[in-house]
Nucleic acid binder design. Structure first.
Lengths: 238, 238
DNA sequence: GTCTATAACTGGATAGAC
DNA sequence: GTCTATCCAGTTATAGAC
């Protein structure tokens, strides 16, 4: 978001977590949870602060107290899990590179990038599922999607590209970037669980079946990337 | 859309095109054009009917006269090009099957499905670009995206699946459906041109470069699908 | 920190003149 | 068909009491 025309006018009373009072339910988190679910389903403009307040069991004014303008709430929702997700994925890529030094494969690198996300979707609960749906939505928003995705997630992606370069030293960068673009499109649509595949397959497949995605997605992307790269470097050494 | 709680109350005075008066600019189309661009960039709730009216150079009341409620306008935008697109793609798949009877390949089928869309994006102008961005956005909307995509585009997709079955007679349907799911995620993100790849690649690649997509996407998806299918049917005949 | 009350405004929609 | 004028429900946001 970072909507330039609606800055929070309050002096941002609570940066980070609520200063004192480790009070039970932690209303700040409840607001974020409610907002996350609603934004994921109905987009930024499709949700009112009142709905968020109602869903969180909280007064409307409290939202402004904690987050300033509505766009501040959105940013907070987006940032909260981005930090966790980035750390998990960077660690995964680091670990893969360390344990496979000199024997880095395309599929291995892609798995190290994709699987942490799918594992979180499998075990992280409803909050994470909403979050992924939200990211998928932002990913496909021309107005500010490209910029937001870049701002929050670029470091991990650059890290993935770097590992892929080791696996494919003769690949052209254009092919790696386009390959990543295709990958992220598939991955984000899969974790946003829109239910389309249920309808399309007449109940044979389920969008919520992330295990089925995990079984297939990295093989799919790895084979695709390899083919694209090979078309441009016909005689692959090694 | 098909928002159940806000039905157009007017008796839908103009179904199809404005009855008489083949008057120059055709305001109905101008409204649709304006709405298409705005919805694509800012989503349904992010656009007001007043904005649409302003952009179209038309009075707000006229929008309600032609389309009833706001959701009616959205549906009209979505439907207008869906009909054209479906026809083009069905024809393309038919033509491919006829000219390659008995020698249907995965990549050929996928090209027959993807390329008409990419060609339209390449030559169809700004309206079509907006339309694809809009479809991409709907595709990733959990609330009604799955249902809407199914309603408008299922026949073509089922047709693609049928052709793929001929190319891969031993493939399991689950793999074909998941393969399609991955394909549509990549394709729709590519044609929504969010500009992310420009930032990510620091200017090396351009989201608007649909020719680059066309060079790579069908090879990518075909290789991916083939790999997924093969993993489950190790000894491929033919 | 939390809630009440309300200001200030924007939104969709329509009646009725032309 | 198109525009003027307007209704009014619902929105963000805040001031100020507790």
């Amino acid at each position: 978001m970072t909507d330039n025309k609606t800055q929070p006018r309050r002096p941002a009373p609570a940066r980070g977590r609520p200063p004192k009072s480790a009070k039970g339910p932690d209303l700040r988190q409840k607001i974020l949870d409610a907002a996350e679910g609603l934004f994921a389903r109905h987009s930024f403009y499709g949700v009112t602060t009142r709905q968020v307040a109602f869903e969180a069991g909280v007064d409307v004014a409290l939202i402004h107290y904690y987050f300033g303008a509505k766009s501040g709430l959105f940013d907070a929702v987006f940032l909260r899990r981005a930090e966790i997700l980035n750390k998990v994925r960077l660690d995964s890529l680091d670990a893969y590179e360390k344990t496979h030094a000199g024997a880095v494969t395309v599929e291995g690198a892609i798995q190290a990038f994709i699987n942490p996300l799918l594992d979180i979707s499998l075990t992280g609960g409803a909050g994470w599922k909403s979050y992924f749906a939200l990211v998928a939505q932002v990913n496909n928003t021309p107005a500010w999607g490209g910029e937001t995705m870049t701002r929050f997630f670029d470091p991990v992606v650059q890290r993935l590209i770097a590992v892929l370069r080791k696996a494919l030293p003769h690949a052209r960068d254009e092919d790696l970037f386009w390959g990543y673009q295709f990958l992220t499109g598939s991955m984000m649509l899969a974790v946003s669980e829109t239910g389309r595949i249920d309808l399309l397959s007449k109940g044979l497949c389920h969008a919520s079946d992330i295990a089925a995605v995990k079984e297939r997605l990295s093989a799919y992307c790895a084979a695709g990337l390899l083919t694209v790269v090979e078309r441009h470097t016909p005689s692959l050494p090694a």
